[in-house]
């Protein structure tokens, strides 16, 4: 196994809150260097799956294994901080910036872990290069920026962690269509530059499939369809039924 493979595999995961079961025997794999889309409308378990990977929710059954630089880690029992420190970054739903701190402070907070500090200069330069808006506004409070700018900052902040695997939860929520497409483009750019492995939960099916290599459709906590290419997903009956109403 090569030393630079980074993948994530979810094997038969059940999870829920109290008596409510949200995920039902979910299995999913993101291979090294792939961009995988997790498609589903609201309330089908996409965010819960992200929370399980990050250790915010604990699966009642199944395993989540991340491979970072060729080394396998079972994520069960690790704290969120430890999981992030392995090299898994999440851009959370709703962005979760630190609104009362400046753009620059938010970015530097992303670089808090010792492994990321060594790359602060190059990562910061790169973030400012692909998001020139952030460079212009670096001393502005994060909370005072527009939704699109905040999404860019959330992405850039995750990159400052110097991750191997990038999870993105609903990047399109609350953004105008033009900004959605820019955000999706930015994810692709970052992925290529840092050679990331990406898992993206999204309900905007057309936009997500522009950059995804493969995808899964999740319905009521179950993976109902696995598409091995964007084409396969595009022509799938389930998707037509759920998204396009045909």
């Amino acid at each position: 196994m090569a030393a630079n493979t980074n993948s994530i595999s979810i094997e038969g995961v059940d999870a829920g809150y109290g008596l409510v079961r949200v995920l039902d025997n979910v299995s999913l794999r993101v291979n090294s260097g792939e961009t995988v889309a997790l498609l589903g409308t609201n309330g089908n378990g996409k965010s819960t799956l992200m929370k399980c990977i990050m250790g915010w929710a604990r699966p009642s059954k199944g395993r989540i294994v991340a491979e970072i630089d060729g080394e396998k880690h079972d994520l069960a029992g690790l704290s969120t901080e430890q999981i992030v420190d392995l090299g898994i970054a999440l851009v959370p739903e709703g962005r979760r910036l630190f609104p009362r701190q400046t753009v620059e402070e938010n970015l530097l907070l992303g670089a808090s872990r010792p492994k990321a500090r060594a790359h602060i200069k190059t990562n910061l330069d790169f973030c400012f290069e692909i998001f020139p808006r952030l460079a212009e506004r670096k001393s502005q409070l994060a909370g005072s920026m527009s939704g699109g700018e905040q999404q860019m900052l959330a992405l850039a902040r995750a990159l400052m962690l110097n991750p191997r695997i990038l999870l993105v939860d609903e990047p399109s929520v609350g953004l105008a269509p033009l900004l959605v497409s820019r955000t999706i483009d930015a994810i692709k750019q970052l992925k290529d530059h840092f050679n990331l492995t990406v898992l993206m939960a999204e309900q905007n099916f057309t936009q997500a499939l522009r950059i995804a290599d493969r995808g899964y459709v999740i319905v009521h906590g179950k993976i109902e369809f696995e598409g091995n290419s964007a084409d396969e997903l595009n022509n799938n009956d389930l998707i037509r039924q759920f998204y396009l109403g045909m």
């Binding site: 990050m54 915010w56 704290s79 969120t80 901080e81 992030v84 420190d85 970054a89 999440l90 959370p92 979760r96 910036l97 630190f98 609104p99 009362r100 701190q101 402070e105 530097l108 907070l109 992303g110 670089a111 808090s112 872990r113 990321a116 500090r117 902040r157 995750a158 962690l161």
Partner: peptide
């Protein structure tokens, strides 16, 4: 400092701080 910035951030969103690999 990194810890100082995290102190300023912690009351705003402790969970988001976890996503920065900070306890």
């Amino acid at each position: 400092t990194f810890i100082g910035r995290a102190v300023m951030a912690v009351s705003q969103d402790p969970q988001a701080l976890q996503l920065m690999a900070v306890d």
